[in-house]
Design a protein around this nucleic acid. Sequence first.
DNA 1: ATAGGCTGTCGAAGCGCTTCGACGGCTTTG
DNA 2: CAAAGCCGTCGAAGCGCTTCGACAGCCTAT
Lengths: 337, 337
Amino acid sequence: MVTLAEVAQHAGVSASTVSYVLSGKRSISTTTRQRVEESIRKLGYHPNAGARALASSRSNIIALMIPLRTDMYVPVMMEIAIAVAAGARTHGYDILLLTGEEGPDAVRRVTGSGLADAMILMDVELDDERLPLLRDTHQPSVLIGLPASTEGLTCVDLDFRATGALCVEHLAQLGHRDIAVIGEAAAVYERHTGFAERTLDGLRTRARELGLRLLHRPCEGGYDAMAATLARVFDERPDTTGFVVQNESAVEPLLALLRQQGRAVPEDVSVVAVCPEQVATQASVRLTSVALPAQEMGRRAVEQLVAKLDGRGSDEVVLLAPELTVRASSGPAPVRS
Amino acid sequence: MVTLAEVAQHAGVSASTVSYVLSGKRSISTTTRQRVEESIRKLGYHPNAGARALASSRSNIIALMIPLRTDMYVPVMMEIAIAVAAGARTHGYDILLLTGEEGPDAVRRVTGSGLADAMILMDVELDDERLPLLRDTHQPSVLIGLPASTEGLTCVDLDFRATGALCVEHLAQLGHRDIAVIGEAAAVYERHTGFAERTLDGLRTRARELGLRLLHRPCEGGYDAMAATLARVFDERPDTTGFVVQNESAVEPLLALLRQQGRAVPEDVSVVAVCPEQVATQASVRLTSVALPAQEMGRRAVEQLVAKLDGRGSDEVVLLAPELTVRASSGPAPVRS
DNA sequence: ATAGGCTGTCGAAGCGCTTCGACGGCTTTG
DNA sequence: CAAAGCCGTCGAAGCGCTTCGACAGCCTAT
């Protein structure tokens, strides 16, 4: 293992000079710098991460806590995680992957040990038990998702309330009066995951304002669950012509079932989904949808965090504006017979 | 930040004693141990990761390199990653998340800086450019996936060759003679990803042995691509009655298209998939499938790696035996008219 | 009774880096 | 032309931990 001292010797300078070449914290003459850089390259030197962390009390690592649960759409999580990792690298940080399993203890461990300089938390619940810890320890952190109180916290999320409103508006404009919402699995609501509740709130509020009738049903996803849910929906509201689907694993089953029942999309029934672009474009009917900007969220989270670590930036809630893309699954409401 | 020295003082012992209590590397009297543990708890002490890494030259971190690409089924990757993270924690390791983006440089960086003690590589290509580095640096590592040469490497993977064979056997037993294979996206083959080629090899070899006709077609997934592929298949081989699908995002489109064409599953056509259990059980037809044991693979990879780090264990290729579960999508071949 | 071997504890030496203060040599300024 | 400043470099201290050798006290075997 090559050390700083060896590089210094090879370049004929002192260790501190090499360190300053590396960090740029003091000016170094061009000739010296070049000589040092040359030596670094020749010897294949890589600074030891542990020593660096010890001396500088900064690890250049960001901890990312991902949910362990799989009752939510996993690809989105993955996409965020990858965006976070890639974004972090561009700022010189690495990502430490923590699963939700350890819960609040992970926060304590990471904070206490100086393993990471900061954290990003995904899948935040409205009243998340990790939040008090973050507030108390003043651990720099960013949440992806919105808890009940954002006091003293930095959050990044899609504006799900606006998303809900947008979906309703779109269907209302097309003349739909009875709308069914196929929600996430019941467990997601019980856990008080913010995004699910906020979407629902947006949907309901806007529906009320526009005088639409809205029926919300949680759904586990998969064919059997969707079939049962759909039956209940048409049972309760036979005039339903608009669907808003939030659970990605219910999208395809819904389309198949509607087809099977002889209800054409979008002639008889319109479907609007909240899902990643890929799902919307690869479904059996190209879906009118509000995209989940996973990459954008990951990127923004890192940016906020890095700003914080650099002393810039502040506690702030970043809500990304939803964008609805009209595709083939929504159209004018059928004329009532 | 509480330090070892403070704990030592609080407990009335020397720093080294505290250290030995923590590591268990020397025997400590029960009374002393308890006193120290008490102090640790009272002061809320967490060992500093950097200092520990520096002094011991072990970081207790395992680097996990995940693919950046999204042309493969992401949930499987995620599941493996989570299993790796959880498994690592039970052995006292944390996971550093690296994206494939950096390529071989990431290996150099991590090895050189002592950031991680070992690596796990996912999505290994047959002739992966990271492999020479791993071999040369003697970086303890485990691959998830199988490269062309496993010389001096430890690998964990599903036995895809056996998987292919198993699918063919199942269909053969049911009397199918003409089998179409819906493969991964063409890019996956071009990249020479081992699992895709090995599955295909298993399929072909066994088909030849059993005297079946096999037609292989890559497929991007999604409805349009699948429709095109399916048309070509029936065009070339009108008597096709058995399908093996390896691309998860082609499964549902295939089922929908078959239905649409009036071909009943499993009465007219049988479908066998290679996919996660969840996909198989949630599809519109419960799928006969060979499961991708993501969790098992993640767990085994960590176990192999930890064994290596502990000086036990050796270079070894662990191939998990495939298991075919018969569900509703496969049945006896229709009688030829 | 004594040599030898355990057991439990301590002190000190680093691990490889960052960073602070110091300092020699130059350039600028009144 | 002296005082004042800046630039580039160095030496040394120290970050918090692990680990090695030392050693005091005690137990066992001769």
